[in-house]
Amino acid sequence: MKNKIKEWLKSGQIDIFLGYKTLQGHPLPHAFGKDNLEDIDTLITGSNYYPLEKIATKLVAEKPDIKIGMITQDHSQRALNVLYIWNQLDPENIKPLKGDGCSSNLKEHADDSHREAGKSGQFKKQFGMNTHASIEEAEIFAQQERFQRWMYEFQKCIKCYGCRNICPVCFCKQCSLEHSNLIGTGSLPPEAPIYHLVRAVHMAGRCIDCGLCEEACPADIPLRLLYRKVNAIVTELFDYETGSRLDQSPFSIIGESITLKLKPIAAA
């Protein structure tokens, strides 16, 4: 693998390779360049996952023609597909290299210990949304209770924007979450549930279920569950598995023929 990367760099197939390297004890994303080919020997593989794809979009924003190689896992391939669709990256300029392993929930120093099976607190299970709940489990509750449970979770939000900042497919130059006409600024918690709903809506057709947002969330809000539901609706309504295909995102198509019936008032 390392030889292959060296070859790619040497032959100019890529200008830079995005992978991981241990720095001061932390496995961190690292850009390997042509100038220092020996550096590639320090590349590590394994279950580390950072949004390398997002780093790639930032690089491309600076240098549109840069050719980037990178380690990918299942979800990173999906992320790349989404970014291709939204014209953030050009598949011609990206050379993915399949790494081993899948993202781990439980890296040392990531402190997401609450996500270990059985670690969700009793109180959270009783009044909030269990981190480990499936969509079906979350839908057991009646409407009012669901609302209370979600509001309990959302009110913990400290508006750190960690969920957005880590997300491999959040790339907008102007983020709706920072739009003061949509969401009030300057107070905690952020307006609930608007803040989280706005983000959820914008994840439709984008979220590739990597789970990084939930891992990043200091308030332990089950964001992944929310966005999983978003994905399920997208699949159901648009027959689209986000990131699985390279054709247009359902949300970028305008004026598609109507195949759905309007919902009657009573049934909603």
Binding site: Q122, F123, K124, G128, I158, A219
Partner: peptide, 19 residues
């Protein structure tokens, strides 16, 4: 705490959620 020491607030949330 949530505004000024948010990562300590996270521990308080967790303690609360554990009972």
């Amino acid at each position: 705490t949530t505004a000024c020491h948010p990562l300590i607030a996270r521990r308080i949330y967790r303690a609360k959620e554990k009972g």
